[in-house]
Design a protein around this nucleic acid. Structure first.
Lengths: 117, 117
DNA sequence: AATAGTGTATTAATATACTAATACACTAAT
DNA sequence: ATTAGTGTATTAGTATATTAATACACTATT
């Protein structure tokens, strides 16, 4: 798993656990880079992604701040929209909630197989 | 999107639409390769993946056959497409499988609440 | 056994994704 | 204006994923 992606995970997790709270400023890219022994640009890349997702706010020349925490965590519409459509259509075709959960699990396992190759 | 992955999708779709039926033999890798103007190995790679997923059956020296249609094999694309997109995007944003399952469950319960109103 | 049809293991080439180095731009406080 | 702190655009290097070329193995038929 790429470094910048691991970093994204860790920051999101920290926010979920309230180790980082709304409005708080994150350590600078250089401080983090030094602490984690990785390149500043790799950290910047993670920051950029988190800004796109609305998790962090970029203040030019100042630093990165933790954004307002959303109701459902930080679910982007690129996730939420297809999820809603999936459930809606599944219900239209009279699939039960259990069947829906089973379907999701099945597709998750398929994707795992594909990744492990 | 990689060629072999597009091919996997197309074959699955063809089976869903009954353009390919249970037990039917697929065109050989060379025939397909020639028709689609791509390398035979790329097609073989798609076939291998589909065999792992249980969609096709490999007969050595003979060819690839369409497998028995699965329990969940008749899911309409109006369900499958958003599901795939949902999982794909969720993974892009680094949600774990557990988190994905939790999300689905959450949305299922929300929809139930709305219905009972 | 020879042949002509299957798919594929192995390897090499290519494309893509990721990381790192450098120099730069922005902001706040001197 | 200078300084010291932010983040980042650009570019180059590296690693990984994908595609392609070749030679091979299996099966059925003759």
């Amino acid at each position: 798993m790429p470094i910048f992606r691991q970093l994204i995970d860790q920051i999101k997790q920290a926010i979920r656990m309230n180790l980082l709270v709304n409005g708080e400023q994150l350590p600078s890219v250089r401080v983090l880079a030094s602490a984690l022994q990785i390149n500043p640009m790799t950290i910047s890349k993670a920051f950029s992604q988190l800004e796109i997702e609305g998790v962090l706010i970029r203040k030019r020349g100042v630093g990165m701040l933790v954004a307002e925490v959303q109701e459902n965590g930080h679910i982007s519409s690129s996730i939420e929209t297809p999820l809603q459509k999936f459930i809606e259509n599944a219900h239209k075709e009279n699939l039960s909630n259990d069947q829906i959960m089973a379907l999701v699990q099945q597709y998750l396992s398929i994707q795992s197989q594909e990744k492990s190759k």
